[in-house]
Structures are given as structure tokens and as C-alpha cells.
Amino acid sequence: MTSSVKVDHLSVSYHGEMALDNITFEAPTQELIGIIGPNGAGKSTLIKAIMGMVPKNQGDIKVFDQSVSKMRQKIAYVPQRSMIDFDFPVLVEDVVVMGRYPHLKWWQRPGKKDREKALECLEQVGMEDFRRRQIGELSGGQQQRVFIARALAQESDLLFLDEPFAGIDLSSEQIIINLLRKIRNQGKTLFVVHHDLSKVEEYFDSLMLLNQRLVGFGAQEDVFKPQLISEAYNGNIATLHSEDGDGQMVVVK
């Protein structure tokens, strides 16, 4: 098994407009992979297409060399926080138990083992003390950790995280990136939709630059180049050089 996700000539359109144009790539396993691009670049659409949630115009998608419909159990999804109604009457542990649903038959209820697994995953993200809290009582960073625990409870090999750092303070961001690294070191592959360029070099092993078409994909240091980033962001970037002339930083205008 050499690739986690293999996408071949994928095109997707939304309401008659092209969202993803002829995307082809093969992603490695056991890596933290960042998906970067401007708003409307199709980042969320790409992960939804890989998970088989949006219809594709053309193209072929394989996950661990299998079709997606056979691999659903192995794919976990961590939603963008803005997509969740945090007034919903569920406790933290209820949310994590949902990660067990793909392992249950349609009539089965989560049992004792599933609850134990959920608790174990809450411990992994350091949220076990909050398990009886309603999900909305937590801070943004804590909520994100709970959803990561849910993905862990699913025992998947492939995780998709949609903007996990959006609206979260810096110390929580640090906790979460450490968690993601830990998960990668357990042998899993993580795709992270990300819009902030400042931490890219520090966070990701591989990088995908997306703007409806694939601008670049590969090892982070090969892709995170001003010229490619500028191409992805339609030229709306500035390169800042440090005083000694060695370091450089790319920011979106």
C-alpha cells in the first residue's frame, strides 16, 4: 500500500460552475497533508468529493486502492466548527460515541465497549474531565479536540479536517497540532484544509496548493515556494524577506 488517496482527472461543478478542474494526484500515507488555497478554491469540495459526498463530472477516486464506498469505515471527518449547532442537546461523550456508528449495524445501539472506546479517545485528547458537559459549554479549541476524539473513536486510517484552526486561540492551536502529529505517528494519514500561510512550513509534511485546479502537490519544501503560492492566490501575495536575506515569509494580501 503506497498511496492513501489517489485522484485521477477529477472534475466537479456546483450549480453549473466549475469547482474543481481536472485534479490528479497521489497522496502518501502516514503524513500530515495541508490543503491550501484562497476562498472558493474548492478545498472543502475536494475533501467532500473524495468522501463521495458531491457528485463528480468525471474522474476516478481511490482510497487505499479501493473505491470510497467500500472504505467509508476507514475515513473520518472532522467538520468545520461553523457547521455545527453547538446548542444541540448532546454531551461531549455522546458526540464521541457517534464515531462508533460506522462500526454498528443499522439496528444496533452503541454498547459498553463503544462507550469505553469513546472514553479512551477522550483521554487521548485530554478531554475526559469534560465528558458530561454539553458540547456548547466548551471553548472552540476544546470542541475541536472532542471532534478529533470522535474521529479517533472511528478507528479510521484516513482523517479529513476542515479548517481545524479556524477561530481558535494560539495555545489551543498548539495543542491540536501536537495531537495531529501524534495521530500521524500512530500511522494515520491526515488531510487538513487550512487557509493561514504563516504556519504551513511548521505544520505539514506534504502540501497541496489548490485554486480550482491543482497548482502544486508534493513535499512541503518543494511546494511552498513564493512563485507557486502566488499562482494559487492569483498573485495576491507579498513576499517579506528577513534582514539577513536568508529567511522569507509569504503573506496573502
Binding site: R72, I75, P79, M83, I84, D85, Y101, P102, L104, R109
Partner: peptide, 18 residues
């Protein structure tokens, strides 16, 4: 119940797991 709960709380995950 399980399907109703998940599809109400997190429709995207519900779709993702089929």
C-alpha cells in the same frame, strides 16, 4: 434513533459514513 441523531447533529459526517 441513531441515524436521526447523527443526521440532525452533523449531516456532513452522516453523509460521509454513508
Amino acid at each position: 434513533y441513531k441515524q436521526l441523531l447523527l443526521s440532525t447533529f452533523d449531516p456532513t459526517m452522516a453523509k460521509a459514513i454513508g
